[in-house]
Design a protein around this nucleic acid. Structure first.
Ligand code: MN
Ligand code: MN
Ligand code: ZN
Ligand code: ZN
Lengths: 150, 150
DNA sequence: TAGTAAATGCAACTCTGTTGCAAATCCACA
DNA sequence: TGTGGATTTGCAACAGAGTTGCATTTACTA
């Protein structure tokens, strides 16, 4: 069953189904790990760590730590999610809801280390790189205090 | 011997001496670790890792790994250097040569993971944060390929 | 309904950085 | 110039995050 982008049911609230559909639409293999983890990430509004994912998956399905790492790596490679590292040197993952979500800024709380994606953001790339350097992407992180930590 | 900023000898090419002067000027304790490590960082034009520092210090002075970490932490706390983490989850350190060097961008090579500080850079902070969020600093990283890796 | 390539679980491992504690060192003050 | 006492250093052990190898299980294709 091949599904076109336009045929995506807007009332498909079940994220497990949505995750499955996203993966199948790209012709990739469906596995419990991919479904559960992507569904979990689709439900989050901020970038979450490996630990947080593990925590939220408790009760739903039990995965080995390594499987979780490997699924996250795969989701990142295939472009379903993106990954970023903040000052605590821990990977954080977030689903790529929109196609154009590669270029966006992040907010990082200096106290609770929470990371939020700032989707609506304008970046002006007028800077001069050293000779011979080639820019591929620009990452902008705003550091400060979140609403809970002010 | 208290030295004023303006009395800094512009012909003081010996970085060991310069490092010592910087630390003494702030009334902090002089130790071999601080002198050698700060001098090494003053000689670099890019942000370097713990490993690279260890490597460059070979022959000059032998320090324990832990001492190196602790000196770097101290230099960062006191504002002699700044620290950043890139996609490989490794700390990189760079001397704060100029007073205003807190706000500047970085370039990170996607192939060799080298990090270069882009000192001459204009940042425009016109973005909207979620309600209640407070911005303290903005970090901008340009990712791409360096001259050697293009 | 096989056959096969890919995904998973488990154990052991690496890499980066941290902590506790005793020995060495720096420096303010006598 | 010599000392007391807080700081810094070295060493060993530890911790957290992520990786690798390999046998077993699973998903898809034919
Ligand atoms: Mn993001
Ligand atoms: Mn820098
Ligand atoms: Zn916070
Ligand atoms: Zn490079």
């Amino acid at each position: 069953m091949q599904l076109c982008c336009k045929s995506t049911n807007p009332f498909l609230v079940d994220l497990q189904k949505k995750a499955e559909e996203m993966i199948r639409h790209r012709g990739e293999r469906i596995t419990p790990g991919r479904i559960h983890i992507l569904a979990m990430l689709l439900s989050e509004r901020r970038a979450v760590t490996h630990h947080e994912i593990e925590e939220r998956l408790k009760g739903k399905h039990r995965f080995d730590r390594v499987t979780l790492y490997r699924v996250l790596e795969w989701l990142n490679e295939k472009g379903f999610v993106h990954r970023l590292v903040s000052a605590d040197r821990v990977w954080r993952f977030r689903a790529n809801i929109h196609e154009h979500s590669q270029q966006h800024a992040h907010f990082e709380c200096l106290r609770c280390t929470k990371v939020v994606c700032l989707n609506d953001f304008e970046t002006t790339h007028d800077f001069a790189l050293p000779a011979g350097y080639r820019s591929r992407e620009v990452e902008l992180t705003v550091k400060g205090l979140c609403a809970e930590c002010v």
